[in-house]
Each structure stands twice: as C-alpha cells, then as structure tokens.
C-alpha cells in the first residue's frame, strides 16, 4: 500500500450523460480523487485513460439513446478509443458502468467480456417488458461467490432504477448459462418478501431473465448495473427513511455508497 497516494477516478462526461455530480460525490466519499473529463478531451488527447485507476461510465442519455441506449456512445468509443480502453483493462484497472454506462459497456462488448475478448457483443439490454421507462426503488440481492469487486460484502441493497431499456438478454443460452454458472450476474432483482431473485414485475422492473440487474466480467473488475447506487448515498434518499427513523433502523450512510467504497478500496490495495 502506498500511503498518501490517492486512487484516481475518471468520470466521463458529455453528450447527454447526466449523473456526473452524484457519481463524483460517491467516488469522493469512497476516498478517490475524482476527475470529470469530457469525452472530447480524451478523444482530443488532452487527457488520457492511462492517468486513472478507475473509470466510471455514468448514467444519462448519451446521444439521446437514439439507435438504442448507449449504442452511439459505444460506437464512438469502439472506433476512436478502442486501444486505450483495451490497455486500461489489461493493466488490471477497474471499470464501473451505471445504467446508461452499463448499456454502453454491454454494447461495446466489455460485458460479459468472456475469455479476454472485450469487444465482442454477446449481450444486450432490451426494452423493458412494459415498453416504457420506469422510475422505482427495487431490492437487489448480491450473488454469493461472485468475483465482482464492487459487490463484495453486500447482501441486499435497495436502489432506484430509472430506465426504459434494462432487460438483460444474451446471444443464445450458452452465454446466459455461463454468466449464471460463473456467478457473473453479481446483482439480481429480488422479491423483498422472500429475498430471492425474481422475474416478476414490479420487483423486477424490466423482465430481465433470472432477475439480472448487474453483470461483471470473469475478473470481477469490469462491472455494470442498471440500478443507481450513486442515487442512494444519503440515508434519506431511501423511500422508507421516515419509517426507518421511527424504528431506529436508519443507517448513517446510504446503501449505494458501499459499491464505490469496494471499488476504490480494491484499486487502493492493488493498483497504487
């Protein structure tokens, strides 16, 4: 460990992305030094991925989600930053994608990222079963034994979803089977009554098979999820906080913070 040095996190902005403020705050809470950089400054070579240990693909509507959520952004990254991105991953660094960021990662091929091939698309996030955008809080259960760096130590976690295209699908059963077998489906929508993964609306807001809400690559360092941990940093973000206050069960910090603490801690231990 290098005491005194800080994990450097990159929050990429621009083109309709919009969760830069809360994602930056989340990473700062977790102890990172956060740099918000416009995608164009990376493409223009004013800044480089190499400066950073952790990259966040944030939420929003990159390019209006025209042509499908994350697609235009992913195409731009693939055609103009592929080598840099590939090097970043091979250097053992971390990537987290949230909502639109997850969609972008999946459309780039970063996830599920089997066998070191990070640019082959074998999954997608299709339109919700309901056919419409939905904002609601959900309960998520972390998959035991998952290699995911970001969900370590998490049992269940309550977070909001805010998306129209969140139904995780794969190209063929083989891909899905392997994701489940290798515990890469790190977070799943759960029925609060049973704590078990569910495909039933509204606890599963989009109809994702096996209740899949978040997926990591086999290394566990590359991770994307549809729900928004950066929108639950304060205990009173939770829709039931007024009840929890009465019961005396209100935590000191929002449950989403743990996701970022895990990522930054891993980077601190392994990359500094």
């Amino acid at each position: 460990m290098n005491a005194g040095r800080k994990v450097k996190a990159l929050v990429m902005t621009g083109f309709g992305l919009n969760c830069e403020a809360e994602t930056s705050h989340a990473l700062e809470l977790a102890g990172a030094e956060v740099h918000r950089v416009h995608l164009n400054d990376l493409l223009d070579g004013l800044r480089s991925l190499g400066e950073f240990h952790l990259l966040a693909f944030i939420g929003g509507f990159s390019f209006g989600d025209h042509l499908g959520a994350g697609t235009v952004f992913a195409t731009r990254m693939k055609h103009r930053m592929k080598d840099e991105l590939d090097r970043f991953i091979r250097d053992g660094k971390l990537i987290i994608g949230l909502c639109n960021g997850f969609q972008t990662m999946v459309k780039l091929g970063l996830l599920p990222g089997f066998d070191g091939d990070y640019f082959r698309r074998s999954a997608t996030l299709a339109w919700n079963d309901s056919g419409v955008f939905r904002d609601a809080w959900v309960r998520l259960v972390a998959t035991p034994g998952s290699p995911c760096v970001f969900t370590k130590g998490i049992g269940t976690i309550d977070l909001p979803v805010r998306h129209g295209e969140g139904r995780f699908m794969t190209a063929g059963k083989g891909v899905m089977d392997r994701i489940l077998r290798e515990n890469l489906a790190a977070l799943r929508y759960a029925d609060p009554a049973t704590g078990k993964p569910t495909v039933e609306f509204p606890h599963n807001p989009n109809g994702s098979a096996a209740g899949i809400a978040g997926v990591c690559d086999p290394t566990g360092r590359i991770f994307g999820m549809m729900p928004h941990p950066e929108a639950h940093l304060f205990p009173f973000n939770h829709p039931q906080w007024t009840r929890k206050k009465i019961d005396g069960s209100m935590p000191g910090e929002g449950e989403g913070a743990a996701v970022f603490r895990n990522g930054v801690a891993f980077a601190r231990e392994n990359l500094l």
Binding site: N18, C19, A21, E22, H25, G59, V132, F133, R134, D135, A136, P160, R162, H228, E230, A231, H232, L233, F234, F236, N237, P239, W241
Partner: peptide, 15 residues
C-alpha cells in the same frame, strides 16, 4: 408519473 425520472442527481428526500 413513474415514467418521469425523479431521482437523478441523488438529492431527493421526500419523493
């Protein structure tokens, strides 16, 4: 109403 985002920015306390 659920089709409108009411959480982005993470500042919402009474929804």
């Amino acid at each position: 109403s659920r089709q409108y985002d009411h959480e982005v920015k993470g500042l919402s306390a009474v929804k």
